[in-house]
Design a protein around this nucleic acid. Structure first.
Length: 814
RNA sequence: GCCCGGGUGGCGAAACUGGUAGACGCAACGGACUUAAAAUCCGUAGUCCGUCAGGACGUGUGGGUUCGAAUCCCACCCCGGGUACCA
């Protein structure tokens, strides 16, 4: 983990208040308040554990035990993910009703977790397929709809003709369906429901600043990238004849005098209106079917011209396959001299190239001699009143002119798009809307919530949403006019569920509200969230968005749900990430059956630090099993009845044992509190075991008892079963889980002597064993006594001596 | 292309602040115990040269800063991940 130090820096004035709020909530550390930890992923109820989850939950379980022994309560909910896709498949297969399925899921999960020695509070059970969860998903949807944050529009979607369903972008692999690798995905226009995430784009981006220190840098970077703010100018071109305006967005308005045509996205509304015989659609379909890497720049002339408001010149209006509708305005001004893509397009279609920017120390390029665009900033030329200005200054003045002239303005645009939440699947929260021929789309009134999924649905796997074949579900009365109407059959993306499940966890039985404001205010924001890196930009943006919406609904008064985030690495196997989709998942159950869960968990934790990707190899499990057996034998052999643990050393062996014990306590404790590098914790516990082994027979009974107790306690978060047994072997009656974590005693850990390195010109020449804390001059004197050093220094002049107490002496000699 | 990570023995890795590189473990080898095997215990081990003593080299490559660099700086190479005709 990175530290939580927080450095104020230059923040735009509009974010000053925001900074204060976050600064306050960061500084607040109420030592009496329990911490709220959320594990985003837990084992699946299907009986197969995902390896990534085991690693994940191993961390969580070890932490929970450590915290408990330290006297903290960790609220530690079950994961919503347990009830996601696998549950859908299982429910479909078993034709079971969601509520029933949920209960059996929970039971199965408890059994499974019990097998791993998991222990925590179960009072926070909830799942995304419970009727009450549907209710509040729908409630949030309606509140967002009222505020224009949920809306419906026609949009291009990925469509697999074989599955006859819409695919999420993640389900499209190399232009084909993830389930039909031979079938190209089609682009289709469909009515879809969206959440207006773009309304919060600026805040989602700027607030990342305040998560620094608590969130991994790579996640912040991925989110910044994903949101993708860019600053530029919007300019209106006027179509000759019709007077229609085409708005373009550009980050380089300083090049606008070099515009030689406009290019519209194939799906730009104007293309449809101009009625070009479906050529736009065809171009779009062609582009969608090809990998972007080898897409040729195609396009056609619309037959219209538009006027550049700066130069008054008319330029042809084209349609190009490389212009995308979803970004900016869906139309660009093509400046071939100064943009490589425009250059390629215009050269191909015989459109003029007109340079207007020259490098600061060079001449303006000649169009005919250019082999590629000059895309850097420079000095503006051939641009009327702006000629001679540097690019940056020209951008400012030209934006100002657009605004003054009413044909444009300075603008920012985001790469982030609104979140399409419609799914044509059986499973998922039904969207609470009713379509009436007279009234249009009408919200389901609050008192009619929840809208539940019908039972006994025939799942044919073909055609549209299975819900469309259930008349009892589809037929509805219009809430406004009372006339016959049709219920919306789309269900919500399951990411909606995961966006706020952790709020529901702290108040899972609430029937009158999604959660009580007081209860969530006690626990939130989440102190520590643990999840996989694969959610860096999906779940972890959606849940931030939901928190901001909830804040604006007045339900909560913080801006960010998660203070600290820990992302564990992915498990790689055979060169690919281990995932249920790819089917290369290791089932730890075999390991558990063969070696037990203590060995399995310790092996996973020992393999690598948790944030790093792990290339999974089974080799080495045996070694971990040997280690635990060795500990078991050692404790059993040395435990003696009725002997009090004692830290009173009576011999050098006693001192050595206690010293190693307390050094290990320090190391393991600090790993828990800071980095979570449990691989090094386990390594140091192994060292302790080895040392005690060496000292066996030389240590007094009291000190041995103290050492064995310490060893058992240190090991217990990683190997809860075996240590619980050893705890009894050591004569303890109270459960180990309730024992106190061992306390580090610096005086016992202190080394009496240290090994010091003697260097000559930075090269290691000798080692000395000296009392710890030996003064510099004495250290040097001791170093000079060494025969080897004397031999090396004979006849040379020592120009300088570097002395680092307890570490080294370095003679710099000529 | 852009943005992140990462590159250390045969392998997983450690080195937390610039100060003994390779802790801990796997695999390997040698030995003890055993009729034998397993298990266990003891030991060896970065590479090269050398009988030993010892020496040289060594953290992707090249350079720099420093008494001293896996660690800091510059340039480059490779691997992994994210993202993209983003205007």
């Amino acid at each position: 983990m990175r530290g939580t130090s927080y450095r104020p820096r230059d923040i735009e004035p509009k974010w000053q208040e925001y900074w204060k709020r976050h600064h306050v909530y960061r500084a607040e550390t109420d030592p009496g308040k329990p911490k709220y930890y959320v594990l985003e992923m837990l084992p699946y109820p299907s009986g197969v554990l995902h390896m990534g989850h085991v690693r994940n939950y191993s961390i969580g379980d070890a932490l929970a035990r450590y915290k408990r022994m330290q006297g903290f309560r960790v609220l530690h909910p079950m994961g919503w993910d347990s009830f996601g896709l696998p549950a859908e498949n299982a429910a479909i297969k078993n034709r079971r009703d969601p509520g029933e399925w949920t209960k059996s899921n929970i039971e199965a999960m408890k059994r499974q977790l019990g097998a791993f020695g998991f222990s925590y509070d179960w009072d926070c059970e909830t799942s995304s397929c419970e009727p009450e969860y549907y209710r509040w998903n729908q409630w949030f949807f309606l509140r967002m709809w009222e505020r224009g944050l949920a809306y419906r529009k026609s949009a291009a979607v990925n469509w697999c003709p074989d599955c006859a369903t819409v695919l999420a972008n993640e389900q499209v692999v190399d232009g084909c369906c993830w389930r039909h690798e031979e079938t190209p995905v089609e682009q289709q226009e469909r009515e879809q429901w969206f959440f207006r995430t773009t309304a919060y784009a600026d805040e989602l981006l700027q607030a990342l600043e305040f998560l620094e220190g608590g969130w991994p840098e790579r996640v912040l970077a991925m989110q910044r990238n994903w949101i993708g703010r860019s600053v530029g100018t919007e300019v209106d071109f006027t179509v000759q004849g019709s007077g229609e305006r085409i708005r373009v967005f550009t980050t380089r308005v300083d090049t606008i005098f070099g515009t030689t045509c406009l290019i519209l996205a194939p799906l730009h509304p104007l293309v449809a209106r101009l009625d070009l015989g479906g050529r736009g659609q065809a171009l779009a379909a062609d582009a969608a079917s090809k990998s972007p890497d080898d897409l040729e720049k195609k396009g056609f002339f619309t037959g219209h011209h538009a006027v550049n408001p700066y130069s008054g010149e008319a330029v042809p209006v084209w349609v190009g396959n490389f212009v995308v509708m979803g970004y900016g305005t869906g139309a660009i001004m093509a400046v071939p001299a100064h943009d490589q893509r425009d250059f390629e397009f215009c050269r191909k279609h015989g459109i003029d190239v007109f340079p207007v920017i020259r490098p600061a120390d060079s001449e303006l390029a000649r169009a005919g001699e250019m082999t590629e665009a000059f895309a850097d900033y420079g000095v503006v030329e051939r641009s009327g009143e702006f000629s001679g200005l540097a690019s940056q200054e020209a951008i400012e003045r030209m934006s100002a002119k657009a605004e003054a002239g009413g044909f444009g303005k300075a603008a920012e645009t985001f790469r982030l798009r609104d979140w399409g939440i419609s799914r044509q699947r059986y499973w998922g929260t039904p969207i609470p809307a009713i379509r009436c021929d007279r009234c249009g789309m009408v919200p389901v009134p609050d008192e009619d919530l929840p809208v539940l999924l019908p039972r006994g649905v025939e799942l044919t796997g073909s055609g549209e949403s299975p819900l469309r074949s259930v008349p009892e579900f589809l037929d509805a009365d219009c809430p406004q006019c009372g006339g016959p109407a049709e219920r919306e059959s789309d269900t919500m993306d399951t990411f909606v569920d995961s966006s706020w499940y952790f709020y529901r966890y702290v108040d899972a039985r609430n029937e009158s509200a999604p959660y009580s404001t007081e209860r969530v205010a006690f626990w939130f924001p989440i102190d520590q969230y643990i999840g996989g890196i694969e959610h860096a930009v999906l779940h972890l943006i959606y849940c931030r968005f939901f928190t901001k919406v909830m804040r604006d609904l007045g339900l909560i008064d913080w801006d960010e749900p998660i203070r600290r985030l820990f992302t564990q690495g992915m498990v790689i196997r055979d060169g690919r990430k281990m995932s249920k989709n790819l089917g290369n998942v290791v089932s730890p159950e075999e390991l558990v059956a063969q070696y037990g869960s203590d060995t399995a968990r310790m092996f996973a934790l020992f393999a690598a630090p948790p944030e790093r990707d792990l290339d999974w190899l089974d080799e080495g499990v045996e070694g971990m099993w040997r280690f635990l057996s060795r500990v078991h034998r050692f404790v059993v052999r040395n435990a003696s009845d009725g002997v009090e643990a004692s830290a009173a050393a009576r011999s050098e062996a006693d001192r050595a044992a206690l010293r190693k014990l307390h050094q290990t306590i320090k190391r393991v404790t600090s790993d828990f509190e800071t980095r979570w590098h449990f691989n090094t914790s386990i390594a140091s516990i192994m060292e302790l075991t080895n040392r005690l082994h060496d000292l066996e027979g030389q240590v007094s009974d009291g000190v041995m008892q103290a050492s064995l107790q310490g060893l058992t306690l240190l090991l217990s978060p990683f190997a809860p079963h075996i240590t619980e047994e050893l705890w009894q072997v050591l004569g303890q009656e109270a459960p180990l889980l309730n024992a106190r974590w061992p306390v580090f005693d610096p005086s016992l850990a202190r080394e009496d002597t240290v090994q010091v390195v003697v260097q000559v010109n930075g090269r290691l020449r000798d080692r000395l064993t000296v009392p710890k804390g030996l003064a510099r001059n004495q250290l040097t004197a001791r170093a000079r006594e060494s025969e080897r050093i004397q031999a090396l220094l004979a006849g040379r002049t020592v120009r300088k001596v570097i002395e680092v107490p307890d570490r080294l002496v370095n003679f710099v000699a000529m």
